[in-house]
Amino acid sequence: MDELATEELVEITVTVNGTVHRERVSPRMHAADFLRQRLGLTGTHIGCEQGVCGMCTVLLDGEAVKGCLLLAPQLDGRELRTVESLAQGGELAPLQQAFKDCGGLQCGFCTPGFLMTATALRESGRRLDREQIREELSGVLCRCTGYDGILTAVDRVLNGEQR
């Protein structure tokens, strides 16, 4: 499709979930489209394309960012992680298991966004109480769960069972 576009393509080298990819991308392609359409990583979802809903949240050099607000050329030289990186050898990661145990998902469309946001929180090493977790998760919207199961799951993984 890109050969029909009039703009010049940009070559990027990006590490995604540990694999190095070298790709030529349209300057107007955003990172979430790049992941989905170029790399086939369809676990990253798209909900608003204006940085509000958080469906496309991924980790860029360890930081949770909204993939729809990043252009693919900006990924050059960076390291990206998506929801597909979490489970190892078919085993759910502790965060994924907690979502399952706590009723943290229903339709599952927002789930990758919450999982990546919570992964960044966990790796930050910050100590957060439930109210702070609630604030931190407010950048991702869920229309199914009412957030309670999500908060409980993240709280459980960040702070252990001693609630």
Binding site: R36, Q37, T42, H45, L86, F99, K100, L105, G108, F109
Partner: peptide, 21 residues
């Protein structure tokens, strides 16, 4: 009981319509 739907959705392996091409 654990939900049947969860494992695929948690791993980004759900199949939503936009995932079909």
């Amino acid at each position: 009981v654990p939900r049947k739907e969860d494992d695929r959705l948690l791993q980004g392996d759900g199949r939503f319509t936009d995932d079909v091409e």
